[in-house]
Design a protein around this nucleic acid. Sequence first.
DNA 1: GGTAGTTTACTTACTAGTAGGTTAATATCA
DNA 2: TGATATTAACCTACTAGTAAGTAAACTACC
Lengths: 221, 221
Amino acid sequence: MKTLSRQQALPSRTAAPTAAATAILDVAERLAQTRGYNGFSYADIAAELGVTKASLHYHFPSKAELGRSLIERYHGLFGTALDAIDRRTNSPQEKLKQYVGLYDSVLSNERMCLCGMLAAEYATLPAPMQAGLTRFFDANEHWLTAVLEDGLRSGTFSFKEAAKERARVLLGALEGAMLVARSYGNARRFQTAAAFVLSDLDAAAHPRRRRTPAAAAARRT
Amino acid sequence: MKTLSRQQALPSRTAAPTAAATAILDVAERLAQTRGYNGFSYADIAAELGVTKASLHYHFPSKAELGRSLIERYHGLFGTALDAIDRRTNSPQEKLKQYVGLYDSVLSNERMCLCGMLAAEYATLPAPMQAGLTRFFDANEHWLTAVLEDGLRSGTFSFKEAAKERARVLLGALEGAMLVARSYGNARRFQTAAAFVLSDLDAAAHPRRRRTPAAAAARRT
DNA sequence: GGTAGTTTACTTACTAGTAGGTTAATATCA
DNA sequence: TGATATTAACCTACTAGTAAGTAAACTACC
C-alpha cells in the first residue's frame, strides 16, 4: 500500500486539506458525479488509490462526513469560478455563456453536476448533505438572479417574471438538460439545449416583450 | 406471510401481469422514484408487502429484470396518458399544460419522474434499463415535437429553432425543474418554473419572432 | 544533540449487517 | 395431479465501520 501524503509542515490555522484528503475527495467526487452517492463505496475509492478502507476512515470517519466535505468543496470551487466570471466580464450575456461553460466542462468529462446528481438521491442523503445541497442551489440562484437583473436593467435581456423566478428556470433547465444529455452520452445535446435556453433571454429576439425599457428605446433607433 | 395474488384466470395471450407482480412493481416504482434504483433493495419491497425476498425472485428473477419491467410499465402508462391528452384536446397549448400536469401529479406525490431519476444513475444501470430509458425520452421528445410543430403551424407558439430541439429543451427543463424542486420539498417551485417555460413558447408574448434557422445559428456563435 | 513522548498516517484483522440470489420443500388451487 | 405461488434456510459478496497495532516523523526538554 502506497502512501498518499508525505505532508510538509503547513502552518494550517484551520483544517487545511492534506494531500491525502484531497486525493480521496478527487476520486470520491468523480465517482459521485458518475455513479451517484449510493453508487460507490469506500472499497471503490480505496482500490483506486491503492490504500485500505481503514485509511479512508482515518481521513473521513464516515461516508456521511465524506459526502458533506464533497459538497462543501464543490460549492467552494463553484463559488470561486463564479467570482472569476464576474472578474472576467461585465456583460450579463457573456457571464451566462461562461456559466453554461462551467456545466459543459463537467459534462464533457462524462460527469453530471455533483449537486444535480445528489438531488436525485436527496431522500436517501444524511441531513448535513441535504442542507449543503440546497445551500448550493441557493447560491447559484442568487448569482444568476443578479446577472439577470443586470441584463434586464441594461436592456440585454427580456423576460416578464421576476429575475429570481427566471434564475430558477435557468438552473433547472441546465441541470435537466445535463441529466438527459448524459444518458445519450452526448454533450452536443446539452450545448444545443443550453444555447436555446440562453437565447430565450435575448431582448433582441422579442422586441415587444414587456419589462425592457431600454430595449424599447433601442428598437426606435 | 400473506399471499400477494389470488389470481383469477386471465386469458393472457402475452405475459399478463399477475396481481402479485403488479403489487411488487407498485412498491418498487415508488421506492425507485423516491430513493433511486440503487437506493432500495428486495428486502425493502418484501418487508413492505409482508412476503419473503425469495417470493419476489419468483416473479422477477433479478433486480435488473425488475428494473426493466419498471421502465416498460412506466413507459406504457405514460404513453396511454399522452394518448388521453390527444383525445381530450386539440389545442397545443392545452396539451402542453396537461403534459406538465402529468409531471406535477408525480411530484405532488413526493416522487421524481422515474426516468429522470434513473437518468442520474444511468452509468450504474444494466444495459436493458439504459436502453429503456432512452426509448422513454425519445418517445417524449417525439410527442412534444408533434405538439410544438402543430402549435407553430397554427401560430399559437413561436420559437426559432427546430421543433425537435425545442422539445428537448422542454423535456430537460421539466425534468430539471422537478429534480431541484423536490430537494426543496416544494411542488409550487416546479409549477411556477413550468408555467414560465410554457409561456416562453407563446407567440403572443413575442409577436415578431421568426423561425429562421440562420438567425438561430448566428446567435449561437 | 540525543532521547523520550507524541502525533500522523497508515496497516491488518475484524465486526455486524445487508446486498442480490439460490435451492429444496411445501402449500394452494384448478 | 400438475401448475402456480410461496416459504425457510441458506450462500457469497459486499457494505460501512471499528479495534489494535506500527513505523516514521515531529516536538520538547535536558
